[in-house]
Nucleic acid binder design. Structure first.
Lengths: 326, 326
DNA sequence: CTGAAAGCGCTTACAG
DNA sequence: CTGAAAGCGCTTACAG
């Protein structure tokens, strides 16, 4: 049904081999046959079957993307970035969702290999150091692999693209200090990820450099009790924008004003930080760019296997001061 | 490098054909050879190369998913739903992002066909009736196709899974009336989609049935001027949750209270509607379910080509009343 | 510069 | 019940 090399060859009056050569521009072909082929390709609207190309051992031009969850904006933007870079370079993305399941992540790896992908991008579910053998195995097999968003274990050879969350935390804390912060609370969230830990570490270090020891609460709901206790408080740094929003609500309901009484910061620059009233000061996280770079890194390796890859790419966030602070 | 049928055949001491038969369970095979094969498969950890399977004319077990934009929660949830259903049934998703470009949508169709997908799911970018020929062409070629989220032109044969936005609008307006609404404003948004139009239509019809004629504003920023004009207003229905949030901010800044002075409703049940202060009354939209059903519809057709498909599946929303109303 | 042949890994009539 | 052969569409040494 679809047109094949054979059809083109017949129409051009030459062999299939030569058609293939013209299309892949490998060896030298005479100008006249090249033109004949191109004309036939044009007329028949021919385009090679990638399945067959992939089977033949060439690149399948498909990369696997294994995400922990797709319904969240971080992974979303990263997915978007990967897809965009892949398309630019002529690759297609196979999307896998592990729902934060390690088992599922492992299964997806096997599936993707079976599907003949040229490489795999992870945003690995594991922060546990012990459970990344499946990734290392793939890496060592020579199949190009890039990890993004979430760090892997220290000493891992797998190239990783991520955001410098420690620095983001450090920047926020410095801004807090600039605004005169003395009594600072950091609000975490139940499910903690590396990236939250890193943000918190950055905050704590920056604050301690100025002699401030922050109080750490493990969820936004604890803010009410903290305020009720009468403890001094002038700034809150929440581990992400959603938590910041919840925190502001708690503060306002306790009868305090944001930012007049208490300044609040989040991380992420999600839609909510712009829409919330008051709008939320935050650190913008370039996740689309993370996806983009991860994909380019992967394809570079695919197309040039001997390439020495960068071990780690750290992207910087951008402090955005809005109404919820100062 | 990877193990093939041949390896299994050699190990089991039989032919490749028979191995294939055992694995595909087609014709009858003796119990003893079946066992030999299974044992070899086990030992070699064999799993067939899907590229070769696809090339051979069987199902490639890959479906194409063409989304207009991935960085937004609606399409996100739908993507999630598709991926989930696909995985359950042994299919893999190729993700395409058109960025709302019709040209790109057309290119993706060709790409996916070339990639040998078994079927394609769209959330088509066009609401223009004139520009869906590429989809119709595919549909008529017999390749299974399902459209979701956004309607296609009336009379289109392409099965569509979507949310009953008209009914959602109708439900919200009825709730407004139940709450004693008399002076109602509907706030739209710049980029209007079918689904927004449908919501508005539902609202307008329900209100008019009760003798209420709503005022329609084209963006949340107009609410300030409207309030300043001194016009009576007791309820606002915004075309989605983000617009509802902006509307509330405008109302509050104009010195009015939500919901005491003015009740506000949105659509979507996005994260923001829970986090906003006050939390926003809305209609929950089951987009994950939309993706899910679209995918099942597609795979049903793939696996049973003679199947008579439903032309349209309409999913219902769910009214959620929160603090921003009554 | 170009063609015939072999092969990627699989499946499926066609024979036995 | 099972095997040998052909073929899916392509590419790539191997000859000329």
């Amino acid at each position: 049904m679809a047109t094949t090399v054979k059809d083109v060859a017949t129409m051009a009056g030459i062999s299939a081999s030569t058609v293939s050569r013209v299309l892949n521009g490998s060896s030298h072909v005479s100008q006249s046959t090249r033109e004949k082929v191109m004309r036939a390709v044009e007329v028949l609207n021919y385009s090679p079957n990638t399945l067959a190309q992939g089977l033949k051992g060439g690149n399948s031009r498909v990369i696997g993307l294994i995400m922990p969850y797709i319904g969240t904006s971080i992974t979303n933007y990263a997915t978007c970035g990967v897809e965009q870079a892949a398309r630019e370079r002529g690759y297609t993305v196979m999307l896998c969702n592990t729902n934060e399941s390690l088992l599922s992540e492992k299964e997806h790896v096997e599936l993707l290999i079976k599907r003949g992908v040229d490489g795999i991008i992870f945003a690995t579910v594991t922060k546990s150091l012990a459970h990344q053998d499946h990734i290392r195995t793939v890496f060592e097999s020579g199949l190009p692999v890039v990890n993004m968003i979430r760090r892997m274990k220290a000493g891992s050879q797998v190239p990783t693209v991520t955001i410098d969350n420690y620095q983001c935390g450090y920047d926020v804390a410095e801004e807090v200090i600039r605004q005169g912060g003395r009594h600072v609370v950091i609000v975490e969230q139940q499910a903690t990820f590396y990236l939250y830990d890193e943000r918190v570490d950055g905050c704590v270090d920056a604050l301690q450099n100025c002699g401030i020891k922050p109080v750490i609460l493990s969820s936004a709901t604890e803010i009410s009790a903290y305020l009720a206790s009468g403890a001094a408080l002038d700034h809150v740094i929440a581990v992400n924008d959603s938590v910041a929003a919840k925190t502001i609500t708690s503060i306002v309901r306790a009868g305090k004003c944001v930012p007049q009484d208490i300044g609040v910061f989040g991380f992420g620059d999600l839609e909510i930080s712009r829409l919330y009233n008051p709008s939320i000061s935050t650190v913008k996280q370039p996740f689309t760019e993370v996806g983009n770079q991860a994909c380019h890194l992967l394809i570079d390796k695919i197309e040039n296997p001997t390439l020495e890859q960068e071990r780690e790419i750290l992207l910087q966030g951008e402090l955005i001061v809005r109404e919820s602070s100062r």
